[in-house]
Simulated scan of single mutants.
Amino acid sequence: MSHLKIVETSTGKYSLLLNAGSTDVDDVVEDLGREPNGYFWEGVAQRLVAAEAPGLDERFGYDPEGGMFCAYGDDRDALEALAALMEPLASDKDRMRALIAAADADGFEFDD
């Protein structure tokens, strides 16, 4: 099941969306003292981009809300690449645990 979807909001403008609180890892996120809201998922995206795909940095913007993660821009390829990075975290509890542990070790603050 794909937790992320890309929609064309207007001609040539795209949004990558994830409904916060609807993933397979929400219980793990909560067990580790976080709230699996849109702001938390922005932190996940930022960590993934910085660690695994720095070439994506500044190719889209973020506009999360409590109930939704949103990245947006006119570079659909960049948003698709971000979705490919994020999707495994939305369904793999072990990967999410590892990401949060690494973030904690680095002193990274999720804005959740």
Rank of each mutant, 00 (worst) to 15 (best):
L4H: 03
L4M: 14
T9D: 05
S10N: 00
T11H: 05
Y14I: 05
L17E: 12
S22E: 15
D26H: 09
V29N: 04
E30W: 12
E30C: 10
E30L: 15
L32I: 11
G33A: 14
G33K: 14
G33E: 11
P36S: 10
N37F: 07
N37D: 14
G38V: 08
F40E: 06
G43M: 13
V44K: 00
A45S: 13
Q46V: 14
Q46N: 13
L48G: 01
L48N: 00
V49M: 01
A50F: 10
A51Y: 09
E52C: 02
A53I: 05
G55S: 12
E58I: 05
G61K: 15
Y62C: 06
Y62F: 15
D63R: 13
G67N: 12
C70G: 02
D74Q: 08
D75M: 03
D77A: 15
E80T: 01
A83E: 01
A83N: 02
L85K: 01
E87T: 07
E87H: 02
A90G: 10
S91N: 09
M96D: 05
M96Q: 04
R97V: 08
R97P: 04
A98K: 11
L99D: 06
I100F: 00
G107A: 10
E109R: 14
E109Q: 13
F110C: 04
